[in-house]
Amino acid sequence: MQQNLKIDFHTHIISEEFLNLAKKYGDDRWPILEKTCDCGANIMIKGNKFREITDQTWDPEVRIKDMDKEGIDIQVLSPIPVTFSYWSDPEQGLEMARSQNDFIASITKEHPKRFVGIGTVPLQDVDLAIKEMERAVNELGLKGIQIGSNINGKNLDDPALERFFQAANEQGVSLFVHPWETLGRERMLRHNFMYMVGMPSETALAAGSIIMSGMLDRYSNLKICFAHGGGSLPYLLPRMDKGWNVWPQIRKTEKPPSHYAKLLYYDSLVYDENNLQFMIDRFGVNQIIAGSDYPFLLREAPSGKVVDRLTTLSDKEKEKIHGLNALDFLNLNIADYK
């Protein structure tokens, strides 16, 4: 373990024995895992290949070898967003969530110094979601919950979802928001735009919904981190502030949007030093957490590479982004990982 802790906050994992609910319920909308060899598989949906993956995605020993090679002390494990499956029957969605949470918890218990887990919940049913959040954190020892950027087309400020955020606030559960089911998908079919344009736009909409909702006034303990550097949010904040000022009838907050954006967290996955500097100028060093999107093709390797390239940061500031901010966000004690 190196002197300064390096944490990769944004990584995804799936069980090699992933639950086959498509077969169980006769519904091919469920993602399933089809092995192609000992070290590879396809995630399939409706008989079509959604994504090719390798054993990096399920094998902790392979992950640890990569971590050691890249100087990463800890990975934070979260489900692959396509498995959220908010469209499903709530009880079936709970079954999927429980299976994934159990698997992630098993990995963290096997390697407690190398992995931290965050779980998933069936947000199509807020009552079930709250109960599973409590189980994941209190019984399984997971350190947060990953949620999608929208729930069946409902933005995160939809009144039907507020009780979940209230519960997370009261219980001190940190939330990681990852884009999925992006807006305008029908216009993103060419050029892999869903990943390059759709996801950043979707993330900005999710973050903007939280910022404008007034929830951050009501719930002072709420900790939320947004993937991919908050998407396009950093560049939209001045326009959001302008709208807040010229349309007083839309205001649900005490202060303009840029104030609340500084209360949220964001991973560092923006690839470019100028973009990272812009994020730091907008949000502050304490709100940025290094994350790579391991093990997928759009990942940064190693995690925090762009942080190390940014010459304006002091060693102390880099230490915060590489590890200390993640510990703070997830309410972890650094002594437990030394």
Rank of each mutant, 00 (worst) to 15 (best):
T83R: 01
S149K: 03
S99H: 12
T83S: 11
R135H: 09
A97W: 01
E162Y: 14
D125N: 15
V116T: 13
K113Q: 13
I107M: 11
W87L: 06
D157K: 09
D127A: 09
E162S: 13
A97Y: 05
G117F: 08
M133C: 14
R98Q: 14
Q100G: 05
I145D: 01
E162L: 15
P90V: 02
S88Y: 02
P90L: 02
L77Y: 01
S78K: 00
R98I: 09
I151Y: 05
K143C: 06
R114G: 08
I107Y: 11
F103I: 10
V82E: 06
I130A: 01
E134M: 09
D127Q: 12
R114Q: 06
A168Q: 07
F164R: 04
E132F: 03
H111A: 04
Q146G: 00
Y86M: 03
E110G: 10
G153I: 07
Y86W: 08
D158W: 10
P159R: 14
N169K: 12
Q92I: 15
V137H: 04
D89T: 04
M133F: 08
P90K: 06
D158P: 08
A129H: 05
L123V: 01
L156S: 13
D89C: 07
I107P: 03
F164I: 08
P122S: 03
D102I: 12
L94N: 05
I151M: 13
N155P: 00
N150C: 07
E110P: 03
R135E: 02
A97V: 09
P81T: 07
I130T: 05
